[in-house]
C-alpha cells in the first residue's frame, strides 16, 4: 500500500468536482452541461471502480490491511460524493 492508493479515491472526487465547476462555468445550465456532467460522473465512477479492484487484490501485514480498509472506505465515500455531486445536473 502507498499514498497514491490511499488518497486516490478522494483525488478522483476532486477531479470530478473541479471538472463540474468548469463545466458549469463554461456551459452554464444547458443540455450540454448536463450531458458532460453525466459523462464525467461515469468516467470518475469507473476510475473509482478501477482503483477498488487494484486495492482489493492487495495483501500484507496488519498495517497494509489497515491502509487497505481505509482506502476502500475512502473510495466508497468518494463514490457516494461523486454521485451526490452530479444530482443537481442529472435530476433537475
Amino acid at each position: 500500500m502507498n499514498w497514491r492508493l490511499l488518497l486516490g479515491g478522494m483525488a478522483i472526487w476532486a477531479l470530478h468536482f473541479f471538472a463540474l465547476y468548469g463545466i458549469g462555468s463554461i456551459w452554464h445550465s444547458g443540455m450540454n452541461a448536463r450531458l458532460l456532467t453525466g459523462l464525467m460522473t461515469l468516467l470518475c465512477l469507473a476510475g473509482e471502480g478501477w482503483l477498488l479492484t487494484r486495492i482489493w487484490r492487495q495483501s500484507g501485514d496488519h498495517l497494509d490491511a489497515w491502509m487497505r480498509h481505509l482506502s476502500l472506505t475512502l473510495i466508497a465515500l468518494a463514490s457516494l460524493a461523486i454521485l451526490w455531486q452530479a444530482f443537481p445536473a442529472l435530476l433537475s
Binding site: Y21, R34, Q85, F87, A89
Partner: peptide, 20 residues
C-alpha cells in the same frame, strides 16, 4: 449570480461535507 448549475454543485458539496 453564478450559473444555476454551479450553485447546485456547491450546495451539494456543502451538504456532503457534513458527513465526515
Amino acid at each position: 449570480g453564478m450559473p444555476t448549475l454551479s450553485v447546485g454543485f456547491f450546495s451539494a458539496a456543502s451538504m456532503a461535507v457534513s458527513v465526515p
